[in-house]
């Protein structure tokens, strides 16, 4: 179990992460979603002990994580910068990881380099954005760390490379189950891989749910303004539009069949809300509103 208790990360007077509590059972794939500047990287930095939380604690299997050799050895956090020296060759990066990582699989690393068509003799400085991400994937997966954290390691990758990344991620997870946390904006194409989804916004935890629970969680109700207003009263509104006398309201609500039948007889239409839309609605305003007539 990974436990975050009231974790805050501040840079001077800037608050990046504020009072986050999370319990993450190990052995699952998590998706960390949040807009740019929502505090994802700061949260992950605290989780991986790259930075001591300004306040609060991170515990892994009951042990305080910061500067704990047993925990840090088992944690692999890949950031988009790769955290390397620009003059290093890819080969040197992998060799270094091989020296330090107890579960490093050099053959698998070589296979992945091949898959992403990366020349190990290239220097880090001469890699394109997408190639850097791919090297990050290689470092992250081949380390086989019990806690593997990949921070947007798809930036600059084309659709083919991303697809290969997701396939390898899942395949390697199935063969070597471990805790994987993936932060991303590209929810739609990768959500199927996540067992659970964590959404943060403005440094605060917005949601931590089983991914499957989010599918079909929202609903869009469309119809005559008065009928819609009457129907949606009392539910949490995520967004709404009005055109002439027609009103469309997106709710954070899973109506049951009886509700749907009642709505349909009142001339209302119901539309599903995908995970991507739900995420956009949840994070596009600070506070969801209570519906009124």
């Amino acid at each position: 179990m990974i436990e975050l208790r009231d974790v805050s990360v501040r840079y001077g007077s800037t608050v990046a992460v504020e009072g986050i509590d999370l319990d993450l059972p190990t052995g699952k794939i998590y998706g960390l979603l949040g807009r740019n500047g929502s505090g994802k990287t700061s949260l992950l930095s605290a989780l991986a002990s790259f930075r001591r939380p300004s306040s609060g604690t991170v515990r892994v299997d009951g042990q305080d994580a910061f500067e704990n050799p047993a925990v840090m050895r088992q944690t692999c956090f890949i950031r988009d910068t790769l955290d390397t020296n620009e003059s290093d060759k890819v080969r040197a990066l992998l060799r270094f990881a091989g020296w330090m990582r107890p579960n490093w699989d050099a053959d698998y690393a070589a296979k992945l380099l091949d898959l992403f068509e990366i020349n190990p003799r290239k220097r880090a400085s001469s890699l394109s954005r997408g190639q850097k991400s791919a090297v990050g994937v290689v470092l992250g997966l081949a380390a086989r760390a019990p806690l593997t954290i990949l921070d947007e390691t798809y930036l600059g990758m084309d659709a083919v490379a991303r697809s290969a990344f997701y396939r390898e991620l899942l395949g390697d997870y199935l063969a070597h189950p471990r805790t994987i946390i993936l932060s991303t904006h590209l929810i739609e194409e990768v959500a199927d891989l996540f067992e659970r989804v964590i959404v943060i916004d403005h440094g605060r935890l917005l949601l931590h749910e089983e991914t499957d629970e989010l599918r079909g969680r929202g609903v869009t109700v469309t119809g005559p303004a008065a009928a819609v207003g009457e129907f949606v009263a009392g539910h949490t509104v995520l967004g709404e539009q009005t055109l002439g006398g027609v009103r469309a309201v997106t709710l954070d609500w899973r109506p049951d069949p009886a509700d749907l039948a009642r709505g349909e007889s009142a001339g209302l239409n119901f539309g599903p809300v995908g995970i991507q839309d739900l995420f956009i609605h949840l994070t596009s305003r600070a506070q969801p509103l209570e519906a009124t007539r």
Binding site: E188, A191, D192, D212, E213, L214, R215, G216, P272, V273, G274, I275, Q276
Partner: peptide, 8 residues
């Protein structure tokens, strides 16, 4: 699969 209802 679509994400309009739970995949399971």
């Amino acid at each position: 699969f679509d994400d309009r209802s739970p995949i399971y």
